[in-house]
């Protein structure tokens, strides 16, 4: 058990279920999942399509609510929070990296990254500029600060998204298939960047992926199947398990 695990969990999920209603049909997306993530961990959530990865991330990210069970983020039971408090929690505690970047197209790179800081209203203009420039430097986009997202490549856009997710120095960053829309080299760069920030800043990362290569960078791989928690493995165990699974098929 490493030092991070000894602290109280930043994410605690207990017997969580999530059902979606499609017309008259109720589709279970998560069926009694339990998970604990501790500060500083770099966790990958793996599983085939439809296994519930995105749903789980949405619940952890407080952008959706569980049908039953308890989701606790940074010690707060999200079910007990109002919409306003949930938004506050997202703004101050969680950073998001989306599969399709989700940048604001009419704002420049700098303005996109600065945006969460403006919402927080904690820093003055100079402090914000310093923080944003530092992050753009870290993600290698200092020279693209004035560009609009549509003037950047997919990899560059995802790096902007990473900078935006980290600019508020959140305790937790959630990334839903952050490399899915990128080529393997760019995807590798993004994961390296996330890993570097995890090690330097101690930020907790939870990301979903299909890609075994990406998984290999994680401290632990949480596997889901059919909305159920399968196991929590080391990356090498996960790789073996996935290979065995593929052979089994």
């Amino acid at each position: 058990m490493n030092a991070a695990v000894a602290q109280s969990p930043i994410v605690s999920i207990t017997n969580v279920t999530k059902d979606y209603t499609l017309g008259k049909v109720v589709v279970p997306a998560l069926r009694g999942v339990d998970l604990q993530v501790h500060p500083g961990e770099f966790i990958s959530i793996a599983g085939p399509s439809g296994s519930g990865k995105t749903t789980l991330l949405n619940l952890i990210g407080c952008v959706d609510t569980a049908t039953s069970g308890v989701v606790s983020v940074a010690g707060q039971d999200t079910k007990q929070l109002t919409e306003r408090q949930l938004t506050h929690l997202r703004l101050h505690t969680i950073g998001f990296i989306f599969q399709s970047f989700n940048l604001v197209s009419v704002l420049s790179v700098f303005q996109n990254v600065e945006f969460p800081l403006l919402l927080q209203r904690k820093l003055d203009k100079n402090q914000r500029r310093e923080r944003v420039n530092q992050l753009l430097e870290q993600v290698g986009l200092a020279h693209h600060a004035k560009h609009r997202p549509n003037e950047l490549s997919g990899g560059q856009r995802q790096r902007v998204a990473v900078a935006r997710a980290l600019v508020t120095r959140p305790q937790l960053v959630l990334a839903d298939e952050p490399t899915a829309n990128l080529d393997s080299v760019t995807g590798q760069h993004i994961i390296d960047l996330m890993k570097e920030l995890n090690q330097k800043e101690g930020t907790t990362f939870i990301f979903s992926t299909h890609d075994a290569k990406v998984m290999s960078h994680a401290n632990a791989v949480v596997r889901l199947a059919d909305g159920k928690f399968l196991d929590r493995l080391s990356p090498s165990e996960a790789k073996r398990a996935m290979a065995a699974g593929a052979e089994g098929h």
Partner: peptide, 16 residues
Amino acid sequence: TREIGTLRAIGMQRTR
């Protein structure tokens, strides 16, 4: 709509 979702996800309150 997606932009609104993103802005809400990253912490923009409804009033904003």
